[in-house]
């Protein structure tokens, strides 16, 4: 009891700007096993949405887990999720805590 349970939350980011406007670092086989948001750029979709925060760790993108994926693979998934015309939003499952595998 009293241990903080790592809570995750689903953030829906509408594609309201021409860019997503975040930067991530980390991925499998690095000190940061899951991609962490290190920058949120003013005027980007993420900034407009207002629910993503620097420091949050991304667990899933549109329901696809990033667990075990190296940085470039995770980055490709996020880029494709923003590029696709199928959805006008991206769903990010994020957590505040550094989730170890």
């Amino acid at each position: 009891p009293g241990l903080l349970e790592p809570t995750s939350c689903l953030v829906r980011v509408p594609k309201s700007a021409s860019t997503l406007g975040i930067a991530i670092e980390g991925g499998a086989n690095t000190r940061q096993p899951l991609p962490r948001i290190v920058t949120i750029q003013r005027g980007g979709s993420a900034h407009n949405c207002g629910q993503l925060k620097v420091g949050q760790v991304i667990l899933e993108v549109n329901g696809v887990s990033l667990r075990g994926r190296e940085h470039r693979e995770a980055a490709r998934l996020i880029a494709e999720a923003f590029k696709t015309k199928e959805k006008d939003y991206i769903d990010f499952l994020v957590t505040e805590f550094n989730v170890s595998l």
Binding site: T19, L20, G21, I22, A23, I24, E25, G26, G27, N29, T30, R31, Q32, V38, T39, Q41, H71, R72, A75, I78, A79, F82
Partner: peptide, 13 residues
């Protein structure tokens, strides 16, 4: 396996 050299990779979107 030990962290590889590209561990500080950052990607902007």
């Amino acid at each position: 396996s030990p962290p590889k050299e590209y561990e500080d990779e950052v990607t902007f979107f």
